[in-house]
Design a protein around this nucleic acid. Structure first.
Lengths: 158, 158
DNA sequence: CCAACAATGTTCAATATTGAACAATAAAGT
DNA sequence: ACTTTATTGTTCAATATTGAACATTGTTGG
């Protein structure tokens, strides 16, 4: 059954993607360590970045942006609220939705954490020329579109 | 405090990496769905692939390759053994290590799962030319090296 | 207006992942 | 030989993540 094995490792796109996945996983690991000083983890940073950028976003929208379930937000956000990083205010028009905001401290932590992440990325991508970075990003955008197409395929195969 | 925000989103490498991370996360999500038919998840596939390629590997080595803790393997592998996908045999020379092998069924499941993953990757990367894939992989390898350097930096700052 | 449906957030049980402490075995230093 | 140190795997408690079931609120169609 070496036929299959040969088929697998010969696929250049497969090998390429494995490298991408590996780099992502490593980046996550290292980022986790560097964020430990601020006592937050990558998921928290993702939330902080989104609240920094999209003030007053709802839990639902945030979950969609982060590609996680609503229940995840229901578990995580109250913790961050208790830690004084964020604030949740009920929408006046729609009593179902909770709108999310950074506190003063949350904004400060967000800025420190973003500086750490940016620094890490700058350091580790420094050997990759800017044009290559742009080409990569362009490819990734196409891949993201293709994956979204896959997702609706799965949901509605009719 | 928009200065920091501008600094952040102006960094082209930062934006590029965000796209990479997002694509990876989406790929993981879609792969999880497609593997559901075989009743396995991406972590199991990673294990199967490595046992397929490196027969008789130890738990320690496997954990290192997968970038997870040893305890993770101690929790996951017995499950897969009970499901009849893998087998663990004690090393005769060194009584501490357990060597890992695929069973017949494990090999079959591995091949099906790899076919699914390869298909997904082929489909979603089809719009990216082979040369660009190779260039990407090359960049990722450099990034992986840089990240390994970061990790030892953290561990031994002396 | 009212009934059916949709959207938002919460809860809960199941599963995953991690790091620290531990037991058994091996290797090294004396 | 023997004490110390390192390596391998396990256990356990803490934390994260998910999907399904649910309650509340909003929207739509009669």
């Amino acid at each position: 059954m070496n036929k299959n094995q040969a088929l697998l490792w010969d696929h250049p796109r497969f090998r390429s993607w494995i490298a991408v996945a590996r780099a992502c996983q490593l980046m996550q690991t290292v980022l986790t360590r560097e964020l430990a000083d601020l006592d937050i983890k990558p998921p928290h940073l993702d939330i902080l970045i989104n609240l920094y950028r999209f003030e007053g976003i709802s839990q639902q929208e945030l979950a969609r942006k982060l590609l996680v379930g609503r229940s995840n937000m229901s578990m995580t956000l109250p913790q961050m609220e208790k830690r004084g990083l964020i604030e949740r205010r009920g929408d006046t028009k729609d009593k179902r939705v909770l709108r999310l905001f950074l506190t003063e401290e949350g904004r400060a932590v967000a800025e420190e954490a973003m500086a750490i992440q940016t620094g890490l990325i700058e350091r580790t991508l420094s050997s990759t020329p800017i044009e290559q970075c742009h080409a990569m990003a362009e490819s990734m955008e196409k891949i993201i579109l293709a994956l979204h197409a896959e997702m609706v395929d799965e949901t509605e195969p009719a």
